[in-house]
C-alpha cells in the first residue's frame, strides 16, 4: 500500500488549504461589503419597504387556508386546509365570474389590443409633422385622467333620463335606454371607455418608438424592389414592431385575471353583475365589504397563482414561436 501514504499526505495538504481559501473568501467578501457600505446602507430602507408592504402581505396569504378570526389574528387562526377554496369554487359566482373575466379579456384582446397598433401605423404614414404631433397630443391626454373622472363622464353621458346620449336618441325618435343597467352593454362600455379611449394614444407611443427603431435602409431597399406603401407596412413595419407587440401581449396575458377591477367597480351595478362581475370585484365585495376575509383571500390567491402561470406559459410560448421573451 505504497500509494496510500502520498495520497493521505496530499489530503492533509488540501484540507488546510481549503480552509484558508474559505477564510480568504470571507475576508474578501468583508472587504467588498465594506467597500460598498453606503450602497448597502441605501438598500436597507428600500428592502425594508418591500418586506413590510409587499412580502408581509404574502405571509398573510395563509388565511386563505385558515378559519380567520379577527381576535386570533393571522397566525393564531386554525388551519382548515382547502375549505375556503372549496367554498369559493362551489359558489355560484365562481363560474360566472371566471367566464366574465375571460370574456372581458377576450374582447379586450380583439378590440383594445390592436387599436394602438393601428393608430401607430396610421400616425407613421402622416408626413405633416404638425398634424402628427397634434393628433398624438390629443389622443394621449385621456391617459392622464383618473378612472373616477372617466367613470363620472361615462355615467353622466349615458344617464337614463338626461344623459346626452339619450337626449340624442330621443331627438331622433328612439326610445331612451338605461345603458349602464343593461348587462349586454357592459363590456362594450367598459372596453370602449377604460381601455380604448383612455389608453389608445398612450400605447401608440410605445409602438411608435418601436417603429422609429426600424432601419430606414430596409424601406429604401423595398422601394427599389417596387413595394408599395401597404407592402412596406406589411413586410417591414409590422415585423419591426413584432418584439414590442409580443412583449405587450405577454404582459397583457400576465394581467389576464387582474382586469381593471378598480375601474369595473366604478361602472358596474347589481343589474349588470351577470356580465360585469369578475373575480377581483367579487373579492372586493365579499372580502372587503362583506368581511368574508378568508374566502376573499382564497379567491385572490387563485387569481395570483393563475396569473403567474399564465405569464410564464405565455413567455415560454413566445420564446418558442418568435424568440422574444421577457426573461
Amino acid at each position: 500500500m505504497q500509494l496510500n501514504s502520498p495520497l493521505s499526505e496530499v489530503k492533509e495538504k488540501i484540507v488546510p488549504a481549503n480552509r484558508s481559501v474559505l477564510a480568504g473568501k470571507l475576508q474578501s467578501i468583508k472587504t467588498i461589503v465594506w467597500r460598498d457600505k453606503y450602497l448597502y446602507l441605501m438598500l436597507i430602507p428600500f428592502i425594508l419597504w418591500y418586506l413590510i408592504f409587499a412580502y408581509k402581505p404574502m405571509y398573510g396569504l395563509q388565511i386563505a387556508f385558515k378559519d380567520y378570526s379577527l381576535f386570533k389574528g393571522i397566525s393564531g387562526s386554525p388551519w382548515v386546509g382547502f375549505e375556503n377554496f372549496e367554498r369559493f369554487f362551489q359558489s355560484e359566482y365562481f363560474i360566472r365570474n371566471l367566464v366574465n373575466t375571460f370574456m372581458i379579456n377576450f374582447w379586450g384582446l380583439i378590440f383594445a389590443f390592436p387599436a394602438p397598433i393601428i393608430l401607430a401605423l396610421l400616425l407613421n404614414e402622416v408626413k405633416n409633422m404638425m398634424f402628427k404631433k397634434t393628433v398624438q397630443t390629443i389622443t394621449y391626454l385621456p391617459h392622464f385622467i383618473s378612472v373616477v373622472i372617466i367613470a363620472g363622464i361615462v355615467t353622466n353621458f349615458l344617464a337614463p333620463t338626461n344623459g346626452i346620449v339619450n337626449i340624442f336618441i330621443e331627438k331622433f325618435g328612439g326610445e331612451k335606454i338605461n345603458f349602464l343597467a343593461m348587462p349586454e352593454f357592459f363590456r362594450t362600455i367598459y372596453i370602449g371607455s377604460m381601455q380604448i379611449w383612455k389608453d389608445v394614444g398612450y400605447s401608440a407611443i410605445i409602438y411608435l418608438a418601436a417603429i422609429a427603431g426600424i432601419n430606414p435602409a430596409l424601406y429604401e431597399a423595398a422601394k427599389m424592389d417596387g413595394a408599395n406603401r401597404w407592402k412596406q407596412v406589411w413586410h417591414i413595419t409590422l415585423p419591426g414592431m413584432l418584439p414590442t407587440i409580443m412583449i405587450l401581449l405577454i404582459l397583457n396575458l400576465g394581467s389576464f385575471l387582474e382586469v381593471g377591477y378598480e375601474s369595473i367597480i366604478l361602472l358596474y351595478q347589481p343589474a349588470t353583475y351577470e356580465t360585469a362581475d369578475v373575480i377581483n370585484t367579487y373579492v372586493y365585495r365579499a372580502g372587503l365589504q362583506g368581511g368574508n376575509y378568508e374566502v376573499g383571500a382564497a379567491a385572490g390567491l387563485f387569481n395570483s397563482v393563475v396569473s403567474l402561470i399564465l405569464v410564464v406559459v405565455a413567455n415560454q410560448l413566445s420564446k418558442k414561436m418568435t424568440n422574444i421573451g421577457l426573461w
Binding site: Y50, P57, I74, G254, G300
Partner: peptide
Amino acid sequence: RGRTFVAFFIAFTLWFGAGLIPTYLN
C-alpha cells in the same frame, strides 16, 4: 454583491401579488 438576488426580490412582486385582502389586513 447580491445585486441579482435583490433584483429578483423586486421583480417577483411584479408577477405575484398577495391580493386585496392580505394587503388590507397588513
